[in-house]
């Protein structure tokens, strides 16, 4: 459950201050939502606010439970730190046993040998697998996905999807993706962002028709904003 109380947000997006949310008061009950809008480029800052990664300019965002990091983003999986140390950090933060988590993760991932290397050197598919697989370990109550759920036909995808489906029972999911099939597979309701606020609609299929998802367009084109404010790097656009 997510409570939004008087949430107004004006972040710097693509070099300009944009009014993203304005006086939003709502309770997002436990369910599976697909985030839809005519501006998919703004889903990223919206998910930041919903996940509590960035507080809004005004107002309060409260969560009834633990929130996952937005899976599917490259996110914290970069830099010179090794994967093992990252697992250790996450496990320590959430009070989990480090060794059995590493064990579990290396059984799930396609190429666990990368875990001991710096994350900087990982190929993109390993980063994606890591982001999704690691998110299964802590006992989250609210799952955020910003990007495509693993879909390549391989062992990891099949195992992950089965495990995730089991984890998702009685939990909240907010999914922002450009893949229609994943929305209809995983979500039951549409969470529509329009007029600087959210609206929940029951009929997902209708809403997907009205707000066709598309791949975020600003990935490949040059970005207007200053380098500090880019929302997604070009390398991410290929698989994330």
């Amino acid at each position: 459950m997510i409570h939004l109380t008087g949430v107004t947000d004006r972040p710097q997006l693509f070099g300009e201050k944009q009014l993203l949310l304005s006086g939003v008061n709502m309770v997002i009950a436990r369910d599976r939502y697909a985030l839809l809008s005519i501006t998919p480029d703004w889903h990223r800052p919206l998910i930041d606010v919903l996940a509590g990664i960035r507080p809004p300019s005004h107002g309060l965002v409260q969560h009834g439970g633990l929130v996952s990091w937005p899976m599917g983003r490259q996110g914290f999986i970069r830099g010179k730190g090794s994967g093992l140390k990252m697992v250790q950090l996450v496990c320590n933060l959430y009070g989990l046993d480090v060794l059995s988590s590493i064990d579990w993760l290396s059984d799930l991932m396609t190429n666990p040998e990368y875990l001991s290397k710096p994350m900087l050197e990982w190929p993109l598919y390993i980063r994606q697998e890591f982001s999704f697989a690691l998110a299964l370990i802590p006992d989250f109550d609210i799952y955020m996905i910003d990007g495509a759920i693993p879909f390549a036909p391989c062992r990891f995808t099949k195992l992950w999807q089965t495990l995730f489906e089991a984890r998702l029972a009685n939990r909240t999911l907010i999914l922002s993706t450009y893949r229609h099939s994943q929305m209809t597979d995983y979500c039951t309701k549409a969470m529509i962002y329009e007029r600087n606020g959210f609206r929940i609609e029951e009929n997902l299929a209708d809403c997907i028709g009205r707000f066709p998802a598309r791949q975020i367009r600003n990935d490949t084109s040059a970005q207007g904003g200053e380098p500090g404010n880019d929302s997604i790097t070009a390398s991410e656009s290929l698989t994330f």
Partner: peptide, 21 residues
């Protein structure tokens, strides 16, 4: 494999210390 992974995941959660929440 899936069964084993999900059992072990449950084990990890069972031995979890207090959650941050």
């Amino acid at each position: 494999q899936c069964t084993s992974l999900s059992t072990r995941l449950k084990l990890i959660h069972a031995t979890q210390q207090l959650r941050p929440l």
